[in-house]
Design a protein around this nucleic acid. Structure first.
Lengths: 263, 263
DNA sequence: GGAAGGCATTGACTCATGTCAAGGCTGCGC
DNA sequence: GCGCAGCCTTGACATGAGTCAATGCCTTCC
């Protein structure tokens, strides 16, 4: 099961869904333990179940494959009851909240190996929509099953705590008072580092989201994002053509955005 | 053990610390099960340990009393290794981060019964200082012990997940694009509701933090906070004298701040 | 009770970013 | 290959909030 479709437009990889599309596919250990899974944030949970030990039957229903979804399709919706968390297998996703007046707020973008849905634990409903930005596939984990697993495997519990806690740190950084340049630089560097952590090139990648999604996420106007990128280009910090991006001076960008960068 | 000192300036309540001040006091079940504790966010964890069952010895070290601390004293510091979470017993606390240039960012204010320190799980160090705004006391919970308890008591695990997840929701709201009026209105209503949830009057309370702390927390300038409050006063939304605040039209304020309010 | 220091308020001005508007580029479908 | 639609860029202008500065108020401490 390849991950090479991340930047592509075809969802060729993956088993055909059992019923319609987006579909649910049963999980076979051999499939779970793919190359890709090694970098997944939930691999430790996966390892507990599959990996050739389906006899651990109480957790048999822990995980299912989901998708492929086409760009623009919704994985879950704001207000849906919370039952599962999702790991992105392929493609990229944005999460967004709609307020009373229908104004959108983009909470974040998620790459293969990253986890969405943990913010639904408190209200017990999804606080946001998850929308595929490119053709995408997911692993869906039953949260009750995952919680039970966590009580048996302290490492899993710890890992889940860390995943949420990390999202909290990141949300707080974004909530600070930062200029457009700082926000933009930090956004690009962060994205690069996350791609790198998943085995993709970290200084040369495709932006799967529109300028206005980026703007919304960073609390800027789309025009400001455009102008900032143009300025970065003029300074030789980036080379950018449409949505293809090359971080030409990542250290300088990192310094610019340091106040917003966690690690 | 009274909670009546929240707005006061004396920390009279509580047992004398065993060694110096701020001191640590052993926990006696009878003390734990005070009136106050019923509204504490960690009461379910407490109930597992104390409440007349000290024979549950593996968890004996779960909780300790801490304090009193005087206004301005620091409970834990940014960078300290993460070992415990804290529940506020009395007084109020702010948490703040310092960036590379020493600029402060106020993350939040915490009232009696609320929990601080959960954001330290991911980096395994406290990401912020916690500073008493008034004389304050705490319950300190060993996090390893709490985690172990959580593996045995799924309800506790669930509760911890919820506490972090809720902080995540709130941080995200603050990260959105909101006017000074929205931010200020939401802040006041939220504070009132949290006081009310802990048994204090929710429309008539004392602001234990300075205008500039509020401003910093909301990403505004202190002058903007001042001007906004003056405008609210002129519109009859609040009556405010120094730090004494009366929410005169909480419904209107709530409407103003609705985009920033969770519940 | 008076002086001092910190906090709060108010006004005048500045500036970063948002808004509005026009035009260009790109990719897709026919 | 043309035209359309959506996205992106750029410019001109508006504005909400920040900054600077002066003054007032309250608390504390001698």
């Amino acid at each position: 099961m390849s991950t090479g479709t991340v930047h592509g437009s075809s969802a060729g990889a993956g088993q055909p869904p059992s019923a319609g599309r987006p579909g649910v596919t049963a999980v076979f250990p051999a499939d779970v333990a793919s190359d890709f899974c090694r970098s997944c944030a939930l691999s430790s949970a996966c390892a507990m179940v599959g990996y050739g030990r389906p006899e651990l039957s109480p957790l048999h229903g822990l995980m299912q494959h989901l998708g492929p979804y086409r760009a623009g399709e919704t994985v879950f919706r704001q207000g849906d009851p919370f039952e599962s968390v999702f790991a992105v297998r392929a493609g990229t996703v944005k999460t967004r909240q709609l307020d009373q007046h229908g104004r959108e707020h983009v909470l974040g973008f998620f790459l293969p190996g990253e986890v969405i849905g943990l913010d639904a634990i408190y209200p017990d409903r999804f606080p946001c929509d998850a929308v595929a930005l490119e053709d995408a596939q997911f692993c869906r984990f039953s949260f009750p099953a995952m919680s039970e697993l966590a009580t048996q495997q302290p490492a899993i519990q710890r890992h889940l705590f860390q995943l949420i806690s990390r999202q909290l740190s990141m949300a707080r950084l974004l909530a600070g008072d930062h200029s457009a340049d700082e926000r933009m630089a930090a956004f690009l560097v962060d994205l690069g580092e996350r791609y790198a952590a998943r085995g993709f090139p970290g200084t040369h990648f495709h932006l799967s989201m529109s300028r206005s999604d980026i703007a919304n996420h960073l609390n800027l106007a789309a025009e400001t994002v455009s102008r900032t990128l143009s300025r970065f280009r003029a300074k030789g910090l980036v080379v950018i053509k449409g949505r293809m991006l090359h971080l030409h001076a990542p250290e300088q960008l990192r310094e610019l955005g340091q106040n917003l960068l966690v690690a």
